[in-house]
Amino acid sequence: SIKEIEKEEIIKVLKEVNFNKKLASEILGIPLRTLYKRLKEYGI
């Protein structure tokens, strides 16, 4: 599903940037606030 793909992509990017959420949100092209929402939604 799209949610699974998105979750995997978020985890992959977070690992690449050593869990720097600000940098991860910039790489993913989403606002930091949205990233936090996704992390909560996906239980990351």
Rank of each mutant, 00 (worst) to 15 (best):
I11Y: 09
S1G: 14
G43V: 05
E4N: 10
N20A: 04
V17K: 03
I10H: 02
P31S: 15
E8Q: 14
E8F: 12
E8D: 12
I5E: 11
K12F: 07
E6Q: 10
Y42S: 04
K15Y: 10
P31A: 10
Y42W: 14
I27S: 05
V13D: 00
N20H: 07
L23P: 01
V17E: 02
K7G: 06
I10P: 00
K37P: 02
F19Q: 07
E26N: 09
G29I: 02
L32Q: 04
E9C: 06
Y36F: 10
I10C: 02
I11E: 08
Y36D: 12
I2C: 06
E9I: 14
Y36T: 11
L39P: 00
K40H: 14
I30A: 01
R38N: 07
P31V: 03
L39C: 05
S25R: 02
T34M: 11
K3Y: 09
R38L: 15
L32R: 03
E8I: 12
R38M: 15
I5M: 15
I2E: 14
K15M: 12
E41S: 06
E6F: 08
K40N: 09
L23Y: 07
E6S: 13
E4M: 06
K21A: 12
G29F: 03
K3V: 11
E41Q: 09
K3C: 04
N20D: 14
P31M: 04
K22Y: 10
N20M: 04
Y36A: 11
G29N: 10
E6P: 09
E41W: 06
K12C: 04
L14E: 00
K12Y: 07
R33M: 11
E16I: 11
E9G: 10
L35A: 00
E4C: 07
V13F: 03
Y36M: 15
Y42E: 06
I30S: 01
Y42R: 01
E41A: 08
V13M: 05
L39S: 02
V17C: 03
E4W: 06
N18T: 04
K22D: 06
V17F: 05
A24N: 00
L35Y: 01
L14C: 03
F19Y: 15
E41N: 05
S25L: 02
L23C: 03
E9W: 15
L32M: 08
K37C: 03
